[in-house]
Simulated scan of single mutants.
Amino acid sequence: MGAADIVPGVSGGTIAFITGIYFRLLEAIGAVPRSVFRHLFRGQLKAFWQACDGTFLLSLLVGIVASIATLASAISYILAQYPILIWSFFFGLIVASVWHVGRQVRHYAPALMLPFLAGAVFSWWVTMLPASELEPSALIFFGAGAVAICAMILPGISGSFILVIMGMYVPVLDAIRAFEIGTLLIFVGGCLAGLLSVARLITWAFRHFHDLVLALLTGFMIGALNKVWPWKETLSWRTNSAGERVPLNEASVSPLSYAEMAGQDPQIVVAVICALLGLSLVLMVEWAGKKEAAN
């Protein structure tokens, strides 16, 4: 789940979903607030641990943190040095996730087109919003954590992709890479606030509107593909906190238009291979999840 959450492609929720632990995760998170008041505040540590499935949550947390810590620097480097190839890989991840989440709909019906189209149009509109030139503040880091964590536990929406849309993906990666404790604590605080407040709502929505929710998520991912399109025209620039000049607002263009504007090789063949690798990775994870469930 940590490996999925660090890249704007497959969400940690998707990994949990296809490996069969998703609803156990939601139940465990949803039980935490209630268990705090019923057991922890009364000194009943063992009862608290059992009520919120503590061993399960701890093992997940350790795995996620370890994966994020080890991958952050590598992802930052690849984004800077090989942007077309890494965004192509992410593009393939999201396409495969669209296919996987769409297949989870139990009963296909014409009525599902409405949430599907609403999700696609809304996410496309979000990807077209101009980025802010303001440097991220503590409040923005907190809000980004709260919003991104909600996406991370939804199958089909990548929390890191939400950070890309918000313009917070690179700042968060930089904070992890530089081990900025204060900034990371603020971000984690936002994650905890968002996670504890939304877990029960997500559980309720899936129980009562399973297919509608999945149709909405599928549409959201399709519209969001615009954001991870590998070939971009830079419309404006900004200077980050390290004094580096980086793109601020970008627009998707064709590979040939990119070659003309940038005067660089669009790397079409290698980009297609990277996209296929991303797609294959999701299919392999799904196959492994099914094999594990069968055993």
Rank of each mutant, 00 (worst) to 15 (best):
L196A: 01
A74E: 09
G2I: 03
S67P: 05
L112Q: 08
E233T: 14
S76V: 00
P255H: 07
L281T: 13
K232A: 09
T55W: 10
G92A: 03
P33C: 13
Y77T: 14
L25T: 06
H210R: 13
V98Q: 05
L58K: 09
M113D: 06
M221W: 01
E244C: 12
V126E: 07
P155C: 00
L256D: 14
F37M: 01
V253K: 14
V246P: 10
L40K: 01
W287I: 01
L196W: 02
I84Q: 08
G145H: 00
S132T: 03
A271F: 03
M221R: 10
A47E: 12
A138I: 11
L195N: 08
W49C: 14
A66C: 13
I268V: 01
V270D: 07
A251T: 15
V198W: 05
L248E: 10
R200D: 11
L154D: 04
D211T: 11
W99Q: 07
V95P: 11
F209T: 14
Q50D: 06
F17Y: 08
V105E: 09
I162N: 05
V198F: 06
A151N: 00
F187R: 00
A146Y: 03
W229K: 07
L248V: 13
I15E: 02
K232R: 15
A205W: 11
L60T: 02
L281K: 05
W99N: 06
W99Y: 11
A111F: 04
P83K: 01
N226P: 04
A72M: 02
I273E: 05
A275T: 11
Y108D: 09
Y258N: 07
L25M: 09
G223A: 10
G43P: 11
P33I: 15
N249P: 12
P171F: 02
G13F: 04
W99V: 10
L217Q: 04
S257A: 14
I222E: 04
M1H: 10
E135I: 04
R245C: 12
S252A: 11
R42N: 01
W231M: 06
G223D: 08
I165V: 15
A275E: 04
S236G: 08
W125I: 11
P266G: 12
G243K: 13
S254Q: 13
H208T: 08
V7G: 05
I21L: 13
F48Y: 08
L214Q: 02
G9H: 01
H39V: 02
L58A: 12
I15W: 03
S160V: 08
L217E: 03
M261L: 15
P230F: 05
F23S: 12
S35L: 03
L61F: 15
G219C: 09
P115R: 10
I157W: 02
T234D: 06
K227Y: 00
L60E: 00
C191H: 04
A146M: 01
S35Q: 05
G92H: 02
Q264H: 10
I84V: 14
Q264T: 07
A271Y: 09
Y82A: 13
G145R: 00
Y258I: 09
L45M: 08
A251K: 15
I94D: 02
G194W: 00
A31S: 15
I64W: 00
W49T: 13
A118S: 14
V98L: 03
S236F: 09
A178E: 06
V253I: 14
V172D: 00
F161D: 05
V126R: 01
P130K: 04
L129A: 13
R245H: 11
G54Y: 05
A47W: 02
G13N: 11
M284C: 06
D5C: 03
